[in-house]
Amino acid sequence: MSNAYVSVEGIARRYPGATIFEDLWFSVNRGEFVCLVGHSGCGKTTVLNILAGLEAPSDGVVIVDGQEISGPSLDRAVIFQGHALMPWMTAEQNVAFALSCRHPSWPKAKLREAAQAALEKVGLGHAAQKKPAQLSGGMKQRVGIARALAIAPKMLLMDEPFSALDALTRGALQEEVSRLVTEADQTAFMITHDVDEAILLADRILLMTNGPDARLAEVVVNTLPRPRDRANLHHMPGYHELRDHILDFLITRSRTLAGKQPAGWDPKAVPEVRPAAPQITPPPPRAAA
């Protein structure tokens, strides 16, 4: 695991009388896109907050770039579920605020220029002077994405970033993120409960059982070739096996596996499966005549 940018080592979140999750081990490699999928209540957001440094784990550590983290960092930018834009600032000022934290010595003019450029990257050059209240939900989240990417983080953390958007906007933004992340070879970690979103974006999909006492049950390796786009994703060979596998997990196994530790279970070596890999999936049986 020499390539791991982030290494999560045995983190847990406990409250008096309740363990949300514990003994969580996984890593995110440089340039890799990892999605965490699970039902509400399994502590997904807590995992992300711990990675961001906003919360401390009850147990365990997170190693980033060889160093144990102790708090938030500009190297790990967060795209929040609610866009979390400051409503008193224009789109440009919101991005410029982030930039001014990254580059305290930059003069105002340079910050504005860079903010404008970041907004143009997400197709919002025309809305730079608008306040969040004047923007649609999708545009607000675009500003959030521009703000996160403008500071050139080493890693992007996303907490269900598109869950509050309508399906059409969500699709457009997923492709946008896919494009931006691929362009920059960005390391990314995202929480979602949208299976298609995970299949479109992720290299690996981490599946968590239901809480309390949630744990990482399985790592699904997404072998669908890149570039993927939403229009053709469901025509790709292996897509349905992958999707069915994850859905089966979410519908039944996340519940049946919850709280139980199978014999010989090693939380440090969670089983990896490749449902979409051609050598594993048998050719679909044709209807017998």
Partner: peptide, 29 residues
């Protein structure tokens, strides 16, 4: 002041003074 705005400032490593001046003051104004 909204927790999410404070979290934004924290993840951006904005200092205490900068957070107070640029986030909390306008939020509470």
């Amino acid at each position: 002041t909204r927790k999410e705005w404070l979290n934004v400032a924290r993840t951006l490593e904005a200092g205490r003074l900068k957070t107070a001046w640029k986030v909390i003051l306008p939020a509470a104004a």
